[in-house]
C-alpha cells in the first residue's frame, strides 16, 4: 500500500493543482509514504458489513424555505479579488482541457 513513487506524487500534485519543486517532490514522496504506512493500519481492522460514518450525528432533511435573502454588495465582493474588471473576476486565459 505504501509503495509510493515520485511519479505518483507528481500525478497527485497535478490533481490537487499544486506546483511542487523537485525538492518538495523528493521530500513529500518519503514523508507521504511514511504517513500512509501508518494510516494503512486501518486496514488491519475487520470492517466487513460495517457501514461508513459520514456524520457522527445522523440527521436527514435539513432544508430551508425557498425565500430570497439579500446578496452581497458587488463592490465589497470584488474588492477581495486579486483582479477584477467590468464587474467580474478576471483570470488568465483558460485552457479547454484544464478541468
Amino acid at each position: 500500500m505504501s509503495e509510493l513513487t515520485r511519479e505518483q506524487v507528481r500525478h497527485v500534485a497535478k490533481l490537487a493543482r499544486l506546483d511542487l519543486s523537485d525538492d518538495e517532490l523528493d521530500r513529500f514522496t518519503g514523508q507521504l509514504a511514511g504517513i500512509l504506512d501508518h494510516a494503512a493500519r486501518v486496514s488491519a481492522l475487520d470492517t466487513d458489513g460495517v457501514p461508513p460514518t459520514a456524520h457522527p450525528f445522523p440527521m436527514v432533511n435539513v432544508l430551508r424555505p425557498d425565500v430570497v435573502k439579500p446578496s452581497l454588495d458587488r463592490d465589497e465582493v470584488l474588492a477581495c479579488a486579486p483582479d477584477a474588471r467590468d464587474g467580474r473576476f478576471r483570470v488568465p486565459r483558460i485552457l479547454e482541457d484544464e478541468a
Partner: peptide, 27 residues
C-alpha cells in the same frame, strides 16, 4: 425554476448584472 439557488438565498434569476446575485455560500 425556484426563487433561490440550491444552497443559499440568492435569487435564481437569468440576465442580471454580473456578480450581483452572490453571497458567501455561492461564492
Amino acid at each position: 425554476a425556484t426563487a433561490t439557488k440550491l444552497f443559499c438565498g440568492c435569487a435564481n434569476e437569468f440576465g442580471q448584472e454580473p456578480n450581483t446575485n452572490v453571497c458567501p455560500v455561492c461564492l
